[in-house]
Design a protein around this nucleic acid. Sequence first.
DNA 1: CAATCAATTTGATGAACGTCGAATTGACTG
DNA 2: CAGTCAATTCGACGTTCATCAAATTGATTG
Lengths: 93, 93
Amino acid sequence: MGNRRKAAIDVQGINRALGDPRRFEILQQIARGCSVACSELREQTPITPATLSHHLKELEAVGLVSLARNGKFVDVTFRREIWQRYLEALQSL
Amino acid sequence: MGNRRKAAIDVQGINRALGDPRRFEILQQIARGCSVACSELREQTPITPATLSHHLKELEAVGLVSLARNGKFVDVTFRREIWQRYLEALQSL
DNA sequence: CAATCAATTTGATGAACGTCGAATTGACTG
DNA sequence: CAGTCAATTCGACGTTCATCAAATTGATTG
């Protein structure tokens, strides 16, 4: 319990994920709110559902967000602990 | 004088630059040493001169390294201040 | 059940870009 | 000056990947 270091941070993976400008914008939007729905994200950025779904899956794959089905909707949550650990890794450069 | 905020950090540009795994490795190598020559970098990573030159130019374009000709050689220097400001920008996400 | 809506999957397309070989530039050396 | 060496430029090739339209899944509602 309380085991904070589960998996190592995928620094290269996150680097790559942030490399796309649109994906970075989406992440910023997610980070601003607490838990957002996909449709809500799409109100802010002109993007098709397919593309948004793709980007969210990428962000989830590297651990930056978590996706939770909520009936028809999906709640997207920013995983701030992962983000912090990523930043710490970059700090040690 | 002492004007620390000259130009804004190109966050998206740096994101993109870090997106390529090889380029990130190269940046790590540069950050480890103080000032390195291209040929020195190439001893650590299997890469052609052309490709290395390309990557260094990209890193320079976003301000992460500075390149200085030194006779036949080129000295590559990690710009740690820029790196710090980049990290600060990411912190505020 | 039929209709609607959120989101995903699939497949195709086009653009961005990492990579290298070959030619070139520019500096050092004998 | 001729030769060599570090690095850059150029051009081409191949791959990766963001993007979207269309079809699909799954949940909600009337």
